[in-house]
Simulated assay, not measured.
Amino acid sequence: MTQPSVPPSGGPLWKSVARTVDKLQRDYLNNPYGRDGSDARAALAELRKASAFEPADNPMGLQKIIGLLNPPLNEDFMGRGEKPSASEVALYRSLSLFGVHMQSAKKPMHTSDVSFAQACGQLMPRTDSKSFKHRFDALQLATDDASRAVHLRSLVSLLRSYELAFDYGRFSEDLRALVNPNRKPGVLLRWGRDFARGARQLYDAQPPEDLDTTTNTN
């Protein structure tokens, strides 16, 4: 039985997203044949469907995602005009990708212990390192939110295949910060460090003779 993640120490968006996905995965994994599990499966299916659309082009999907949040999104983060706010786009991206991540999952895909980039780093030694590093680099170099979303879906699908979890609350905060030119460099710097840290963890945990020395960790 999965246990609740440690409550996050971030801001309102972080907490709202983290607690929402934490409950969804507990209901999905712990009570698959009960009412809560059925509701969670339906919600995750809706989230997966939303991941194929842009938030501005999917107002019904955005409405459903906002409605899923528990606790609700703080009014200060809600949009006021005819376009989604940066916070609404970030929660849409993070929750819809969580739906992709949880497809057929047998274990939690949200954890408060590992960041998104760190999980990507942990994956690199397990797969084709050159190909995967190129994918992560393409994400880092993405110049707009829509192209970044394409790379994120590809990476999250790979993380799902290898059952590697990360903190969706922290992830949502990062996605919101990436659209701010003043904050973007700091997020990308931290992602680069976390990626390198995650890639080293597997190597540090194994004796040298157990490692594939042909794997490129650069």
Rank of each mutant, 00 (worst) to 15 (best):
T127L: 05
G10Y: 08
L69D: 02
P185S: 01
G79F: 12
F171N: 08
A119I: 11
I65S: 08
I66L: 10
A45N: 12
P12R: 09
T2G: 04
K49I: 10
P208Y: 14
K184W: 03
G34A: 11
S172N: 06
A146H: 07
D128R: 09
D194H: 12
D194P: 05
L155F: 05
G99C: 01
S172A: 15
A146S: 11
F132V: 13
Q122P: 06
L188T: 08
S147C: 03
G79H: 07
P59T: 06
R170D: 12
S172Q: 02
V17W: 01
A45I: 08
D144T: 03
S172Y: 03
P84S: 04
V187K: 04
C120F: 06
S112E: 13
D167G: 02
L95Q: 00
G192H: 07
D39Y: 07
S172F: 04
S94Y: 01
S154M: 08
N74P: 12
P8G: 10
P12N: 11
E46G: 13
R197Q: 14
V17M: 03
R176N: 12
V156M: 08
L13V: 15
F171M: 05
S161Y: 02
R160K: 07
T20Q: 02
L73R: 02
V21D: 00
A196S: 09
M102K: 02
D145N: 10
Y168L: 06
K23C: 06
C120W: 05
F116L: 13
L47R: 01
P59E: 01
A177P: 00
G121C: 09
L97Y: 02
L24Y: 01
L158W: 10
L202M: 13
R190I: 12
L139V: 07
L13C: 12
F195S: 05
I65H: 04
Y162I: 02
G61Y: 00
K15G: 05
W14K: 06
L123Q: 11
E75K: 13
R160M: 06
S51N: 06
H110A: 06
K49W: 10
S157N: 08
A45Q: 14
N216W: 09
F136H: 11
R197P: 10
R160D: 01
A149H: 07
N180S: 13
L44K: 03
D144S: 11
R160W: 01
A165L: 04
L95P: 00
S94H: 03
N218G: 12
P207T: 14
R153Y: 01
A117P: 15
A142P: 14
M109F: 04
A196C: 09
Q201T: 15
R160Q: 08
N58R: 03
K15Q: 15
L158E: 15
A196Y: 09
P72H: 11
D210K: 08
N70C: 02
S172W: 03
S9I: 13
M109T: 02
P72W: 09
L95T: 00
L123K: 08
T213N: 09
L13F: 10
L95D: 00
P207M: 14
A177S: 10
